[in-house]
Nucleic acid binder design. Structure first.
Lengths: 300, 300
DNA sequence: TGCGCATGATGCCGTTTCGGTATCAAAATT
DNA sequence: AATTTTGATACCGAAACGGCATCATGCGCA
């Protein structure tokens, strides 16, 4: 038998009253039960906590030492109980948020800042990851909310669109396209492309490849880069052109030009996504926050 | 049912393993018992601590919040258990020591200092009190060790002599006795006496009165004072003479003279005294310390 | 001095809690 | 499709807890 909190509570009451019957009354038990419980505690600790007579009860020095700690333990247990309930309510705790290059270039930073001001007790933990990585981490319970290239069809998950971007062409300022107001997608048929690798960027390719096929070509990827910064770096060196989204290109480095693609009306959707069975604590608060936002601008 | 430490321990093991059967093995119980215990804890708290599947177990945000506190609670309980045992051993705690005017004028301060150096974890709490007061406080358990005018015959108490003092006469330097090398006790027969009140000083009178009777007189107390300082103050004003002990008079204020009483060989004994049923913790250490001391000097 | 009272301890018993074995349910793996 | 893995549930016996009755002891009072 290990000392448990019931015995600690009984001990505290007895130490406060120094009278077994009165302490038992206070605890709502019979005096003999209290007598036995204190004896059990003394046996467990191997130390006499009280000196008893039929006239009075005195606490021993060891009992006095234990009393201070007993108060601390009971207080800490109460605090822990309160905090676990607060964490469940979502009033405290951490929120692990994944994001893609597209997400971080869009309204997400503003959203996070706003949410943080509303819920200062919640610690935000942003983590970069391509859509594929984020989906794995959601499944493993290592991520609470993902911001991914969507929409994603997956059972057990809910999502909410937060961003909708046009596709644009990006080329070096020395490229012929740089002089044009706009191009058509078919104009890219013979161009060398720079993009991300096919595994990490598979969700982006799920948009791009069908569009190009419909325009009659398969994009010729001549260079791969790790992320958008890498892609743009290669493009500015004249290695090729690329197709990205308008938000990613809103603040371009010198030497690069954004050219609209006038015959593509499809948009890249970035959605917040979470596991349906994980909407507790801070996650619930964040989901509620997202769903209270106006829908992303999406003109027809 | 209130959350107890057994459930906290089970929770910690489960959170560490994230696998019910392995955690149960670790705890030395069957997996179903652990499953039920965690469910009971979740019911008690009203919060899900884990997400279960037949393939894996994940901890919820609330569970993570609770885990930190669980470690603290278990650690605090261990520390409390260790400390109560140390207090019983006497390695920590406090020691309430009573002392009379005679005791504090003798070797007691030196003893306390020495003991304190040997047991720095024990807090000494000295409390002045006449013998009668100290005996009450010992009986009430509000004092651990008394230093009283002894010997005391009282059941349930043990004592150890620490001090043995000759009786001396103290008078103002203008008094005729001041010119003498020594007096006899009978020389005090017609003198006005200054002393403590008969209640507080009853143990001292238990020595003095029989001695005076044997010398053929009853001392004429004309003035009472609260303590030795008060007595000596009145004597130096010429209100009368007094009989005290040599240690009390070892550092006299100007205007007072100590005159030996050559025909009195009896000595005032100051003894350490404690309740036999209270020799635990720091008290035990102090008693052991005292009993290891050489006996007080007591020439024949 | 004897009796009554107060109070913690102990005995006996019923109720509740805890833990074990066996089994079920569901998902993943082979 | 069969097997394996793993947490949940059912049934049962053991252990723990608490209540009532009673005992033991010391103190206070007449």
């Amino acid at each position: 038998m290990r000392t448990d909190l019931r015995l600690v509570r009984y001990f505290v009451a007895t130490a406060e009253d120094l009278h077994f019957r009165r302490a038992a009354d206070r605890l709502g038990i019979a005096q003999p039960a209290l007598s036995r419980a204190i004896q059990a505690l003394e046996t467990e600790l191997g130390v006499a906590l009280f000196i008893r007579s039929n006239r009075n009860v005195q606490i021993t020095p060891a009992g006095r030492a234990f009393l201070g700690r007993a108060y601390e333990i009971l207080s800490l247990m109460e605090r822990a109980t309160e905090e676990v309930r607060s964490a469940h309510d979502g009033r405290i705790g951490s929120l692990r948020i994944g994001y893609t290059d597209f997400a971080i270039a869009g309204p997400l930073p503003t959203l996070l800042k706003d949410f943080q001001e509303r819920q200062p007790q919640i610690t935000l933990k942003p983590q970069h990851g391509v859509t594929l990585t984020q989906m794995h981490r959601l499944a493993e319970g290592k991520l609470d909310i993902g911001f991914v290239t969507g929409p994603v069809s997956k059972d057990g998950y809910d999502q909410h669109p937060v961003q909708s971007e046009r596709f644009v062409c990006v080329c070096a300022d020395s490229h012929p396209f740089a002089e044009r107001d706009a191009i058509c997608l078919a104009d890219l048929a013979d161009e060398d492309f720079v993009h991300g690798n096919s595994t990490d960027w598979q969700h982006f390719y799920d948009y791009l490849i069908p569009l190009c096929r419909r325009a009659g070509f398969v994009p010729r990827i001549v260079q791969e880069a790790f992320n958008t910064a890498g892609i743009l770096g290669l493009v500015s060196c004249g290695m090729g052109v690329t197709v990205l989204t308008e938000d990613v290109c809103s603040a371009l480095a010198p030497g690069l030009v954004v050219v609209p693609i006038e015959d593509v009306t499809e948009r890249l959707i970035t959605s917040a996504i979470w596991r349906r069975d994980h909407v507790v604590g801070p996650t619930r608060h964040f989901v509620d926050y997202l769903q209270a936002l106006p829908a992303p601008q999406h003109p027809t």
